[in-house]
């Protein structure tokens, strides 16, 4: 701020400005007091663990006895661990199925729901409700429905003349069943996001295209879809990041089994750290996952050609 030469008489406006400036100067302490709780929690339980985890990943640590330095041995071991590579494969398969399925179904349902007919609010509610149910409750519920002996699913299949299925107990089916459960609960999120985006399609644009003789399909392809691109990119990123971190559902339903067919990366990390008490090894696996997430995040920023996270937040918040 440039200081102007002091005027001989102070107008009311100038006096106000001076009071403002004086009070602002004394504010640093107050401001710090306001942000201190947030800073403490973030510093203590995010920044410190972030660094600690990195150090941990270079050590052998059983969470009880003093740890010892092992260099990059943990990372070396990861590359040779068949369980870890299986976890990576399972996670990628799960993500590769869940993300496109939930998004395609979400887009389809949003397009169908985006019209003025009766009961549309009820349909939207029913489709969205599973999203607020915890993964634990979903897992327990589907363990029951899909129970090979007592489950309703086999009962229905039986009535249709189809033989008893193993579902979550069948190594060949379990991962696909987990994807299906996640699609059931995760599609509602894509629907509401797409529905919100569809409201931003400029009506004038639709009208103009219609006057130019565009049919339904052409409108969808050349007018609606292009305006949805940013939202689709966001959903790809969001769904992918969430899918790569799937854990609760796996823990509740299969505990990584049968035969490791549903062991995902986070389950592997949890198992190493809190079941086998090889915390350093688990931390190394966590760093591999975090790095993958970071690469995806940065890549998506490049694709979107946007500024850093702060700018994106600011844009969204300015609405």
């Amino acid at each position: 701020m440039s200081s102007l030469p002091a005027p001989l008489t102070l107008s009311d406006h100038d006096r106000r400005q001076r009071t403002l400036r004086r009070r602002r100067r004394r504010e640093t302490a107050t401001a710090w007091a306001y942000i201190l709780p947030a800073v403490l929690v973030v510093l203590g339980l995010s920044v410190v663990p972030f660094v600690w985890s990195l150090l941990l990943s270079f050590r052998a640590d059983d969470l009880v006895t003093p740890s010892r330095w092992v260099g990059v041995d943990n990372y070396d071991a990861l590359t040779q661990d068949p369980h870890f590579s299986q976890a990576v494969r399972n996670t990628l398969l799960y993500t590769g199925l869940y993300v496109p399925l939930s998004m395609a179904l979400g887009l389809f349902l949003a397009l169908v729901l985006n019209r003025r007919i009766k009961l549309v609010g009820l349909y939207r509610t029913l489709i969205f409700v599973p999203f607020v149910i915890s993964a634990t409750a979903q897992g327990v519920l589907f363990s029951f429905i899909l129970d090979p002996e007592f489950g309703a699913a086999n009962s229905v299949l039986h009535a249709l003349g189809i033989g008893r299925q193993g579902f979550l107990t069948d190594p060949g089916q379990a991962l696909a069943v987990l994807v299906a459960i996640s699609v059931w609960s995760g599609t509602g999120f894509c629907v509401v996001i797409y529905l919100a985006a569809l409201q931003d399609v400029p009506p004038s644009l639709l009208e103009a295209a219609r006057l130019d003789g565009a049919g339904r399909w052409q409108l969808l392809r050349h007018v609606v879809m292009p305006t949805l691109t940013p939202v689709s990119l966001f959903l790809v990123l969001w769904q992918t990041i969430n899918a790569l971190q799937v854990f609760d559902l796996v823990y509740v339903t299969t505990k990584g089994g049968p035969l490791g067919s549903t062991t995902v990366i986070v389950y592997f990390i949890w198992e190493q750290a809190f079941k086998n008490f090889t915390a350093g090894y688990g931390a190394a696996a966590a760093y591999v996952l975090a790095l993958a997430l970071l690469v995806i995040g940065v890549a998506s920023r490049l694709v979107r050609g946007r500024k850093p996270a702060g700018a994106v937040l600011a844009e969204g918040g300015a609405k």
């Binding site: 107050t30 973030v42 920044v47 663990p49 972030f50 975090a290």
Partner: peptide
């Protein structure tokens, strides 16, 4: 409020949002 270090602090806090929970859960 304008205070010393506000910008740096804000960017640092924003950056921590990118740290996944799996990374911090063992030290936590």
């Amino acid at each position: 409020m304008r205070f010393a270090g506000s910008r740096v602090l804000m960017v640092a806090m924003l950056a921590t949002m990118a740290i996944p929970f799996q990374l911090t859960m063992i030290p936590t």
